[in-house]
Nucleic acid binder design. Sequence first.
DNA 1: GACAAGTCGTGAAGTACGTACTAATGTGCT
DNA 2: AGCACATTAGTACGTACTTCACGACTTGTC
Lengths: 184, 184
Amino acid sequence: MKNVHKSDFDADPDGSLFDPAARAAMRQFTGGGDTAALEAAAAVRTAFHAIERMRAHGSQGRGLSSGAMDLLMRLGATDGDGVSIGELAQSAGVSSRNVTGLVDTLEREGLVRRVPDQRDRRSVLAQITAEGRDWIKAFSEPSQRAMTAMFMDFSADEVTRFRDLCLRVADNQHRLAQYLEGAS
Amino acid sequence: MKNVHKSDFDADPDGSLFDPAARAAMRQFTGGGDTAALEAAAAVRTAFHAIERMRAHGSQGRGLSSGAMDLLMRLGATDGDGVSIGELAQSAGVSSRNVTGLVDTLEREGLVRRVPDQRDRRSVLAQITAEGRDWIKAFSEPSQRAMTAMFMDFSADEVTRFRDLCLRVADNQHRLAQYLEGAS
DNA sequence: GACAAGTCGTGAAGTACGTACTAATGTGCT
DNA sequence: AGCACATTAGTACGTACTTCACGACTTGTC
């Protein structure tokens, strides 16, 4: 990670952090209105990139992207014939096109293989390989340690609450998308 | 947004949401260890993509990406000769190469222009144009509405706390990166 | 003044993610 | 049976973000 040296944050009177530069920009943007939602959205962005950087830095060498790692973990948890691309996409909440690409990557690394689905010949099943399971074994502990470090000053309750808030945002988006789809 | 129909979440006994499929995968991954940090990290990813989708859906047509919008807002808040690429990168917490690309995009749209820095001829200043300010005027209200909708069932306190948790994660990453840099 | 070392923006290349479209295949209605 | 329509994975294309490498430029030191 070069050239990225995030500026420090300030703290509000209640102790919660905020990004002064972002807040100033938001205030201008909203014309003096409420910036809370925009600030929170920007903060999610910041946190996401931070986690992404941590992962890139942590699992040096054979580091998989978060998307690929997510898929591999999901495949590792199922001990059957494999999971179809579409099913993976739905469960991970990303486009199937993206899963196709990630499976390409994992297949190139030898961690996953494609097998045709005999029940539905349109479908392709992704199966984790022995190497894939080895990867999981090898990277489980360092990954876990890196992510634990990211939340080092969080109480257990805060971690849980944080997860809850994140998923509620995702839930809202899902609901809104469905609502808007109906309106079109 | 096609092909993306995120599965629903379950709620823990304490009412906090979690992703059952992800948790199952994590448990396998950690070998039965604590999955809290990994689950939280995955949740951030989910929330980030949700916000990204909302923005893509909301500001249809002349929709800028979140990165580009962030830059434009920062430029809109400064009424001087402009801001250098590196300064923007630092303030937004991304690589300067990325800012170069985003300024390319904004310049193509006519929302920003590049001017040489007379004090330092290596440097390039990005200036917001009149069109850029018009864009801000036009998209301020809908963007604000969309982001408010994303947090519709959040109390004001929860939004603030959420922002704080996000920025603390970013702060931890920053600290860890500096620490690890020293160790190499 | 000259020159080594650091900084600045950007070209090149790689990954992740999205939409729109297509070919192959499955399904349901008549 | 046959045919319209849905669904699946993948192709093509565009954007965001990253690291690495490089040329243009500044700065600190002699």
